[in-house]
Computed example of a mutant assay.
Amino acid sequence: MYRARDQVDNEKWVEAIETIGDRLDLSETARSRATDVFLSNVPEKDRSKRAVLAASVYVGALVAGERHSQSAVAEATDVSRLTIQQRWKTLLEETGFDAPDW
């Protein structure tokens, strides 16, 4: 879990989730889950934050039951699909969410 201070310290990244959510037409639930995942796993280096952000958006959509391809999320977040592919399962497990059974 994260602290309220984490949200303040990473305000620009939380705002980025909202912007990306608009691009992908994500529900409020998906955006909220993406924010939870991101803030629970914020890396120290700014360079890694974009990758965690992208994977968090993908996980948030998954947990909310919204189907968005890794490619669509990668394009919306300006990372490679491989970046999401390498990180999303770990983030899902570390935050304790379950993927939907499709």
Score class of each variant (00 low, 15 high):
52 V>N: 03
21 G>F: 03
21 G>N: 14
43 P>I: 08
85 Q>L: 09
2 Y>P: 02
35 T>V: 06
11 E>A: 14
102 W>T: 14
19 T>P: 01
68 H>F: 13
31 R>D: 04
26 L>T: 05
101 D>V: 09
75 E>G: 07
77 T>M: 05
91 L>S: 02
76 A>G: 04
56 S>A: 13
83 T>V: 14
83 T>K: 03
64 A>H: 00
7 Q>C: 15
38 F>G: 01
14 V>H: 05
52 V>Y: 03
33 R>I: 13
23 R>I: 05
69 S>M: 03
63 V>G: 00
37 V>C: 01
34 A>M: 07
78 D>L: 08
51 A>I: 11
54 A>D: 05
91 L>H: 03
87 R>C: 01
93 E>P: 07
53 L>G: 02
100 P>D: 11
25 D>K: 15
84 I>A: 06
83 T>A: 06
101 D>G: 14
63 V>R: 00
6 D>T: 09
46 D>H: 13
32 S>F: 11
20 I>C: 06
6 D>Y: 05
93 E>T: 13
67 R>V: 09
98 D>P: 07
72 A>M: 09
73 V>I: 03
70 Q>A: 01
36 D>E: 14
59 V>R: 00
74 A>Q: 01
22 D>N: 12
36 D>P: 09
73 V>Y: 00
5 R>A: 11
53 L>K: 04
8 V>L: 15
22 D>I: 12
88 W>S: 06
98 D>V: 12
100 P>C: 10
48 S>C: 08
49 K>R: 05
67 R>A: 13
32 S>D: 13
58 Y>I: 00
60 G>A: 05
100 P>A: 10
22 D>Y: 15
46 D>W: 05
58 Y>A: 00
100 P>Y: 10
20 I>W: 11
33 R>Q: 08
97 F>A: 13
48 S>Y: 12
23 R>S: 15
63 V>T: 04
8 V>W: 09
13 W>F: 11
95 T>G: 02
40 S>R: 07
